[in-house]
Design a protein around this nucleic acid. Structure first.
Lengths: 190, 190
DNA sequence: GTCTATAATTCGATAGAC
DNA sequence: GTCTATCGAATTATAGAC
């Protein structure tokens, strides 16, 4: 197999991506402490020392694996009355399509660094969007964002982490409708 | 110091209680994996082998430390319109007065046994109460209980575990009012 | 009932050969 | 860039003296 890319063949990039994928999967499934450099390396089919070489230490590996974007959507075209359900629908997509979020949530319960990262994620991505949508003053917007976070994260916790049967059994449409109504209330009600 | 109790002096009971208190505190603060038998024993001022003697192994220690009662209140005298806020108020009391719940929540994210215990707690204590309060058919009541759990556990997660600043800053009265309204909706709305 | 000593693992991290 | 070998530390759990 010939290689047509110019310059040196950067095999390390592929290895890095493989390691990160394995790390994300294990952090999402077991949290920070149960995930070991050895087990990640085994899953990735490489030697444990490669993980150290690329990411320095276990903290560096987690930081690289938990780095991501909420990809909050542009909701300009959505009528005001449908913003709550639209937000819930978007979050369901993100939770189900990227295990990075679950890795962060699982880890944040027992790891200070992950909890801090969760705070940053909330402050830089979620809070500004809520402030813009609700059109509220800054102080009020922060409380609204906090209430919304409590409901959305609680849903993710019960459905994807704890797997409470009645929450797992909820149909997507019902979640969007009922939790969406709650988010709508937190966005605009006094 | 004389001992007036009949029968043998059960010093072991006091030791057991001391161990459990220390274990609960550490499980609540750090989760399952970070809590070690050694550190619990040190905090309790006894030898690590005593913990093994009384509880068999680490799992047994956690099971004993996380065994508790939600103490769900008798809400017979509460008018139907005030049930949501009354429930939220009660849960706030329980979360702030007993670190056992936080130990369970922190641990449930990364420990299968704790997650299973959380399911049992939900199914045996929370779901029946919701079914009774909502007066709904069994199937509908399960979904209502799940929705309420997602909001209440999400609040505890953001306020006591992740410590998101806007959620920590919320005054108790505002929590009871706004989250209470959500719970009320989940209890009775279609 | 309490403690000492230690066995048996497991993990993060380092040094260095190829 | 990849792997072998290994160190040092920490942990659960056991055996047994007092």
């Amino acid at each position: 197999m010939t290689d047509a890319t110019p310059g040196p063949v950067r095999r390390s990039d592929a290895t890095k991506a493989t390691i990160l994928a394995a790390a994300r999967a294990q952090f999402a499934a077991s949290g920070y402490q149960s995930t070991t450099i050895r087990s990640v390396a085994t899953a990735a089919g490489i030697d444990p020392s490669m993980v150290m070489r690329y990411f320095g230490n276990k903290e560096g590996l987690f930081a690289a694996a938990a780095d991501f974007d909420l990809r909050l959507p542009d909701l300009a075209g959505v009528p005001r009355a449908g913003l709550g359900p639209a937000l819930v629908s978007h979050f369901l997509d993100r939770w189900e399509g990227d295990e990075t979020l679950m890795a962060l949530l699982r880890t944040a319960s027992t790891n200070e660094a992950a909890a801090a990262r969760m705070q940053t994620l909330f402050a830089t991505q979620m809070a500004p969007l809520i402030a813009r949508l609700s059109g509220d003053a800054r102080a009020g917007a922060a409380a609204r964002a906090g209430l919304i976070a409590s409901q959305v994260l609680g849903l993710a916790l019960c459905r994807y982490v704890l797997k409470l049967p009645p929450v797992v059994a909820l149909k997507r449409a019902e979640i969007v409708r009922r939790i969406g109504a709650t988010v709508q209330s937190y966005l605009f009600d006094a």
